[in-house]
Amino acid sequence: MSEAAGRQPHFVAPLDQTPLEAVDRLDEAAPPTSLWAEAWHKLRRQPLFIVSAILVVFIAVVVAFPQWFSSISPMVQDGENCRLANSLAGPTSGHIFGYDKQGCDVFAQVVYGARPSFLVGVLTVAFTLIVGGALGAIAGYYGRWLDALVSRVSEIFYAVPLVLAAIVLLSGFRAQGGVGVFGVVLVLGAFGWPQMARITRGAVLAVRSADFVTAATALGVSRGRILIRHVLPNAAAAMIVTATVSLGTYIVAEATLSFLGVGLPRTLHSWGMQIGDAKNWLAQAPEVLFYPAAALAVTVLAFIMLGDAVRDALDPKVRG
């Protein structure tokens, strides 16, 4: 030991180089930030988020006020909009996307086609959030037989593929000219909620065993109140991310149904239907298919990217 001491003497760093700070100092100057504020702070600097958010806002505006973008409404069936003489004609001034087989303005169709697609997506997600979210939360939080029941029922719905179930259900209404936006939302929601229920259940289960829930119980906070005030807000991040990403999936599902001719009625001119019509003239006029397809892809992409960005910002593992 003495030898060791000899070759490695007692060293003390000069105090001016290693100033001592108070134990556990609190930086009072920093502005307070909640988790959401912190996530927002991170999001604002992320190009992925900025691009996708601008896109989503833009699409929402198109959906709300299509007349701002196109003076021609394809909803009005008169000779003004569609002239067979223009069939598959290329772009002209004022009709930058050209014309489809019926000689209708493609740009106007693409602009007006945004509304049904967007509405189906948003409403279906709202449906799954309410139904799936509630059932998942109840199953995860109360557990026992409620959990078993909800899990089995959701497995049953999960076992039937979404688009397949929708085709079977909706095909019966073809004779009546389709079911409209709410019909499609109901059908997609009926088979889409199990996914949201699973995610919510998992998130609630994780939060339920957290110490702050136990602490709230020990404070005398009631079970229901804990679920609403503590558990759900903490599970919300996972639900929001799932909702944003699945919004894109539902828009694609609606397009697929319309494409197959079992979705929205023809009068709504949804993107899926436009693509379905244009596929027949792909060889002659591929751009007629391209525009609605691109609009659809950009919309879906915007939501998926938004979901990705939000996930990264909220992910506790990434969070410093």
């Binding site: 694609v252 697929t256 693509i275 298919l289 397809a293 659809l296 892809a297 950009v298 879906v300 992409l301």
Partner: peptide, 9 residues
């Protein structure tokens, strides 16, 4: 992109 563009397109 692959996820966003529908299968039928």
């Amino acid at each position: 992109l692959v996820i966003a563009v529908p299968t039928f397109v």
